[in-house]
Design a protein around this nucleic acid. Structure first.
Lengths: 345, 345
DNA sequence: GCTACTTTTTACATCGATGTACATGGAGTG
DNA sequence: CACTCCATGTACATCGATGTAAAAAGTAGC
């Protein structure tokens, strides 16, 4: 038999369709007797609400879109996992899109182009500009992660990247490293992860009274292992003799570790290495990886919280101004900077 | 102004709503003039179809659900990435759920309980039984990945796990290793990944005329790095003196590599290590990891293909019987079994 | 027993797009 | 020129659930 409709349930329970709907939605003024009867009818028919109908009527889907550059970058995978868990906790479902770090895709995400079903978006942008955000026409509730495009443009959750990079660099300097280079850095104004972390790095150098060599900031195309290895190779081949690498994420760092190994350089004796993100791979690498560990659970929670508020507000003219949430991070010291030779167990 | 409806477009273009709908759906019999007029009106109003309405009317959402144990296991993350890409290519959107390897969650996924929106499901089960599948009442089109629950229960895509494990084991035996143990193995009948791969391992041992020590098959709770490290530690502590490890996925292998390093065992000189999945981490580990590389692109393509066919068929009484697709794999030999010291670049 | 409430239930319109079935009009045919 | 035929366009019902407004049923007070 075809899937039962609310009408079938109503018929069977001997009440009106609206009453069934009321039971489904836990409306208060339904007598216990009726409620029971409806429940039974639902049970007997194996009825389940048709979300299409509900959606059309209510204008909400209970789906949120999560938009990340690529899902096979462990940090984003872990984040997605957390966000899905968090969504589940709130009775929501997560639709995942990837942007491949493409500006057009990111813009489309904000305007809800591919996520027409979504009540809101959590976006991890890499290529958006502040102007993009200001000109944004869509009104889809959105929360940005990571990149701090510009304060006040949209709800935003991230760690304090400048401070984190500064702390990581200070840690390296405290180990008496003096030739610290940055893999994945980009010396430029702007809100990007690369830029903000580079600023933290430069600030730490300046504080320590160390000269700054522009050649020590090595940009990469993507934040993946091959890029980390390639950039490190390029640095060595260019004659830089770093005694420490500040890698702007763990993937870059793991790539760098591998390359240093291939070049016969010992970590941390010859070169110390730090990463960002605290992915699982860095807890089992040889050597294990010192890293800045953001509280991703907090990122997911805050992002979801902000988004839910936005969704609830949507339609209100008196919506709150954009909110900023800074989540905590900490420096986890492991073997790659001389930390205690941790056991994997 | 409120979001425009099809009605507004019709009004503006001076045609009927249906005509607008026809233009939207590329219906053939619309004169070029009318088509243009409608297009302009759409443009001017910034109209976009409301998927809720369309969904209700059509009964299809263009959303498919992808259900995996956890998204932060690199293999599943990579797979998800591929599937999302494949879905995009077909104009579909992917909803992601996690089961945490929980049978109830997996069942719910098959019945579409949390994926009510989805036109179909791609499920990577870990805990389902053949009985579950046979008793399945839901009619949501579904494709299973990986575990070969039982031939003929549902559409299914996987590599030939038995053969793959056999090849990997033969590779180790060809290196004159005689004490090969299996991390993550499970000696039992059944269709699970652990079970099938273990069978391949045992078959290779038998073929080589080697005795089989039940203690050499070490089950794990999860297929993650910590479990690999723990199981390896347990094996060593139990007095096994393996000269090769067949790890049933790369995460286990990477965990094992780390632990072997901690115990001062050299890879591959003292112990050779093989994994499954060919995740990126194994291409940059020290040493790099020999592994069985499934063609995940093919997995994604086949799964999507099967699912689309199923969705197209759904409703037909004369649906095809369950289909099986075996995708190719290959053994990639790297340093952990003495392969050429590959460069990371 | 009647009024004045409140609680419970119902009929109906509605959300937005599209399928059905039919009306229209112009081209082609004998 | 009447007539078929087909391309084009339209009115209306429909998908399934729920908000609105109002009817029906119940309760209390006098």
């Amino acid at each position: 038999m075809a899937r039962p409709r609310i009408k079938d349930v109503a018929l069977r329970a001997g009440v009106s369709e609206k009453t069934v709907s009321n039971v489904l939605n836990d409306y208060v003024h339904v007598s216990e007797r009726t409620r029971q009867a409806v429940r039974e009818a639902i049970e007997e028919l194996g009825y389940r609400v048709n979300l299409a109908g509900r959606h059309l009527r209510r204008g909400r889907t209970g789906i949120i879109a999560l938009v990340v550059p690529e899902l096979d970058i462990p940090y984003f995978a872990a984040l997605a996992n957390q966000i899905i868990a968090e969504a589940e906790r709130n009775g929501l479902t997560v639709l995942v899109h990837r942007t491949r770090a493409d500006r057009a895709h990111e813009l489309a995400a904000l305007d809800g182009f591919n996520s027409d079903f979504a009540d809101g978006v959590i976006l991890s942008p890499l290529a958006l500009t502040a102007a993009d955000l200001r000109e944004r026409r869509g009104t889809l509730p959105a929360v940005l992660l990571g990149e701090a495009i510009e304060p006040g443009c949209a709800d935003h959750v991230a760690i304090d990247n400048v401070r984190a990079a500064r702390e990581a660099t200070e840690h390296l300097l405290a180990l008496d490293r003096r030739r610290v280079i940055t893999i994945g850095g980009r010396e430029a104004p702007g809100p990007g992860t690369a830029e903000t972390r580079t600023r933290g790095y430069l600030a730490a150098l300046a504080d320590a009274g160390l000269p700054h060599d522009p050649a020590a900031v090595l940009p990469v195309r993507e934040f993946r292992m091959p890029d980390g290895a390639a950039a490190t190779a390029a640095a060595l081949d260019a004659g830089l003799r770093p005694d420490a690498l500040l890698c702007l994420n763990d993937q870059l760092a793991l790539g760098a570790l591998r390359l240093l190994h291939e070049r016969g350089l010992r970590v941390p004796e010859d070169v110390a290495v730090v990463g960002f993100d605290d992915v699982e791979g860095g807890r089992f690498s040889v050597p294990t990886l010192t890293t800045i560990a953001p509280d991703t659970g907090a990122v997911a929670r805050e992002a979801m919280g902000l988004l839910l508020t936005r969704i609830a507000e949507s339609g209100d003219a008196d919506a709150e101004p954009p909110r900023e949430r800074v989540v905590p991070h900490r420096l986890v010291i492991r073997e790659s900077t001389g930390g205690r030779s941790g056991t994997a167990l």
